[in-house]
Design a protein around this nucleic acid. Structure first.
Lengths: 237, 237
DNA sequence: GCACTATATTTGGTCGACCAATTAATTGGT
DNA sequence: ACCAATTAATTGGTCGACCAAATATAGTGC
């Protein structure tokens, strides 16, 4: 009997508003560069509080779709309608990305970050990476989980790449990966020791300024980690 | 005389609060999993309105750092302290990324997307890409600006890569690039025709399933576009 | 008739108050 | 003394009102 009830109210008010605004844009009622109705007007027309409209706009603004100027108005920014249609659809479901894509993308970003780091790293960068590596080693020696330290090592490499955007994107996707890894809460000494040696190798290539080797080493490392995760997730089931 | 005045208030109230919360976390006063003070208490202690605290928490939550449950409280989620320190720092300055990094990252993402698309594209994908290419050609033939159609072509390739995350990341950074391009509002027939031929070549490689060639062609194409933008920005000054 | 100024209105930004759900405390019964 | 149920306090969520800046409008002087 319970099957007769469908899940209701699964989407929050702000998501509903985002959907509404998308309708206004895709239907051509809101051309790029055009000012959209005042928050009060929108709130009244959508039959909802202004706070919700506000949150929706803020979210859309974060993705660069809208641009709001104080005491002046909110406008549809730059990008054309054609692309927007595909864009906003993804904003809503960005959170639950499939894990395979996540890992694959991470490999892409990190490999390139390692290559760039090898080319551009300063002495200070090397020091920071080494420090992170030491912290990682200490944590392993103590037999504790070193997920955060592992992440920090990769983060320092991203910083050494001198590409702020690349680093930001890594920061966007890595939390999801870390969360997934933590589910298995593995403390396999052997695997972590192997990871440590791979880290060491990557660092060495970056120190020598060998971009190609650094990239390859990073790719191999992430492949290993990924394989390990897979085998463990099998065990968990 | 004007040099005596330094820029003030460059950081918004919410950024200040984010910084404060970071302090609470990194100093160990807020361990992961621990509930942070109520919004009212925080607002009062920081001497600021609750709205600002609310916005800050929302932003932090978006990055997966905090997790707030209705009528229960907000807790520090998952990820550990060590990594957090580097992470939160970047949340603040994510928005204003330098253009060079932006373009460089775009090349990385698109190159890989083209390679993956060559390996995984279905017939439907090919059709969509071709359609986008035709629309691009028509717009050029008409002598109009075809920025959106250009973007759409690249978007379809990203879709053909079957990597949702990769596509999402591209969608995040491309608007900024497009905005920058639109400033010069160029309608150079010669350049756009060249871009069209390059698009055609990329499509051909994807159709043939030649990942390496597709990647190289994409890289060359983006390099050309980037060079063109640079030369034009010189003229504009 | 035109340009500039002063005023009125509209805008997003901010704040405090109220709401329902949750959690802690209290009370009453056993 | 312990447990249950009821009440009180606290929580994030929501809303409407007020604020200063930006814009549109009316007015005034030339």
């Amino acid at each position: 009997m319970l099957e007769n009830f469908s899940t209701i109210k699964v989407e929050s008010p702000v998501d509903k508003i985002i959907r509404q605004i998308r309708g206004l844009i895709t239907s051509g009622q809101l051309a790029p560069g055009e000012k959209l109705p005042a928050e009060r007007k929108l709130a009244e027309k959508l039959g909802v509080g202004r706070t919700h409209v506000r949150d929706a706009i803020q979210k859309l603004e974060f993705y660069g779709i809208l641009r709001t100027r104080p005491q002046s108005g909110t406008v549809v920014a730059g990008i054309g309608i054609t692309a927007l249609e595909g864009l906003i659809g993804d904003v809503l479901k960005l959170e639950k990305s499939d894990f395979a894509s996540l890992v694959e993308t991470r490999v892409i970003l990190e490999t390139n970050a390692a290559e760039l780091a090898a080319e551009r790293r300063t002495d200070a960068d090397l020091l920071a990476i080494e420090k992170a590596l030491v912290a990682y080693k200490d944590k392993i020696r103590a037999g504790e989980s070193a997920v955060e330290e592992d992440l920090l090592f990769h983060l320092k490499i991203a910083e050494a790449s001198k590409n702020a955007v690349l680093k930001s994107l890594m920061l966007i996707i890595t939390p999801d990966i870390v969360n997934d890894f933590k589910q298995y809460e593995v403390c396999d000494d052997r695997a972590e020791l192997k990871a440590f040696y791979e880290h060491q190798e990557i660092l060495e290539h970056i120190r020598n300024g060998d971009a190609g080797a650094a990239g390859v080493a990073m790719k191999v490392h992430l492949q290993d980690v990924s394989d390990f995760s897979k085998s463990n997730s099998f065990l968990a089931r």
